[in-house]
């Protein structure tokens, strides 16, 4: 009898701490973007369990989901995608998950920045332009993405709405402070020196936000090799514009960049995180932005 009473008491006490609609289970999320993985973890906190399928430092242009990744995606209630045609393996994900999980291509809801497509790019429009998939290289876009993820979490789990709103507000405040810091740091560099030579064309959003002009060695995707003609034109441009430094990327082979520096006399300004979170400084979004902006400004001064 004592045991039964004890159990009933324990159940009643436990029930007092559970709000209506709350279950012990967390909302399972599968994310195909390192930046979205961070956003989901920050906004969802203890109410979500996020499987980051594209890992920090992995090149999202070349990523292919493994059977284990597809299993995790099939088990999720929400699938976060970068969008803007970055996930060329989307059909595999859709086949694996069916219509079970809500699929959210966050980038598709963000402002579009058109850029020149690679010659064999299937997503190019008739004028040879394509949407820039690297939306996370704009802090303002990551702020918008945070609000989109917050709203989706609330839609799927209304019981925890207040927590999602509070967590998103705190994260958005950090992003706003980060953008302010970035603007001040970039202001140290005269506008006529804001010429950014990078391994592939991933920084158009950063260029738009902070007044840089981009000269990319490769195209939109890291899978495209630069032609000899393009490299020769770029070498002339770097010499004419007296560009002081060129930048490597954490996910790319630096061979061509190193050759260009030899031809032009420009120095290697450092390595940038172009395709999302990485290891080291860029293991958080704030760290990524601080690393990229400081590296660029300090090398071009």
């Amino acid at each position: 009898m004592m045991v039964v009473r004890g159990l009933v008491a324990a159940l009643l006490i436990g029930a007092a701490f559970v709000r209506p609609g709350q279950t012990a289970e967390t909302l399972k999320i599968a994310s195909f973007s390192t930046v979205l993985t961070e956003i989901a973890r920050r906004v969802g906190a203890n109410h979500v369990s996020v499987a980051g399928l594209v890992k920090p430092g992995q090149d999202p242009h070349e990523y292919q989901p493994t059977p284990a990744d597809l299993e995790q995606a099939a088990d999720a209630r929400l699938i976060l995608l970068s969008g803007k045609h970055l996930e060329h393996y989307l059909d595999k994900v859709q086949q694996a998950t069916g219509a079970k999980a809500a699929s959210l291509a966050v980038g598709d809801a963000l402002p579009t920045l058109k850029m020149k497509a690679d010659p064999d790019e299937p997503q190019a429009d008739p004028t040879g332009m394509v949407d820039d998939p690297h939306w996370w290289n704009s802090v303002a876009n990551v702020e918008r993405a945070t609000m989109i993820v917050r709203d989706e979490l609330i839609k799927l789990d209304q019981a925890d709405q207040a927590d999602y709103e509070k967590n998103a507000k705190a994260y958005l405040a950090e992003l706003e402070a980060l953008d302010h810091w970035a603007k001040r740091k970039v202001a140290e560099l005269p506008r006529d020196k804001r010429k950014l030579v990078t391994s592939h064309d991933a920084f158009q959003c950063l260029a738009r936000d902070y007044g840089f002009k981009i000269y990319a060695i490769e195209g939109v995707s890291t899978e495209t090799e630069p032609s000899d003609r393009h490299v020769a034109e770029l070498i002339d441009e770097i010499k004419n514009q007296r560009v002081k430094a060129i930048f490597l990327e954490n996910t790319l082979n630096p061979k061509v960049s190193t050759e260009i520096t030899r031809e032009t006399g420009a120095k290697i300004g450092g390595s940038l995180y172009a395709d999302g979170l990485g290891n080291g400084d860029g293991s958080t979004y704030e760290g990524l932005v601080r690393h990229n902006i400081s590296t660029i400004v300090d090398a071009l001064k």
């Binding site: 001040r184 970039v186 202001a187 005269p190 506008r191 006529d192 804001r194 007044g211």
Partner: peptide
């Protein structure tokens, strides 16, 4: 001040 055609940023 140096004032290039690209403009200047003042904080």
């Amino acid at each position: 001040l140096e004032f290039p055609p690209e403009g200047i940023d003042l904080v």
